[in-house]
Amino acid sequence: MQVSINVNGTDYNAEVEPRHLLVRFLREDLRLTGTHWGCDTSNCGTCVVLLDGEPVKSCTVLAAMASGHSVRTVEGLEGPDGLDPVQQGFMEEHGLQCGFCTPGMMLTARALLDRNHDPSEEQIREAISGQLCRCTGYLNIVRAVRWAAEHQARAQTESPSQSETAGV
């Protein structure tokens, strides 16, 4: 069957079997291997991508079900001005060790910060509760998301004053 999926801002049309899973479409057809494939049973959460802006486990979504929708993967986090504050936060706070859970964690963090600019530790822990990390004990991941929240807020409050300065 024919599917049309917008991934990271680009429309992709492909002929797929109805049983083709979104995680395989991303990894094998588009070669976007930043989305990891783990337990295959929607438990581990390493395959999390954003579907219309919200985290979903792509091992349990058919590519056919994503047709007509937009998907954001870790490859789509970096913007024209550089790394997303979430990516920066994971670097600054050592939010990863082996890196297997990291793409899914960062996308969940992005979706959380899009809805809530100043999440508490508890809210961050709840947001990532469907995703397993076996390296960090979650502590540094929570710190990384807090780092992103703080620096994102700073970037947002700084930018209007910068443009004012530019206007003068």
Partner: peptide
Amino acid sequence: IADPPVRNR
């Protein structure tokens, strides 16, 4: 019930 990504679906 499950976790946030599952509850989204």
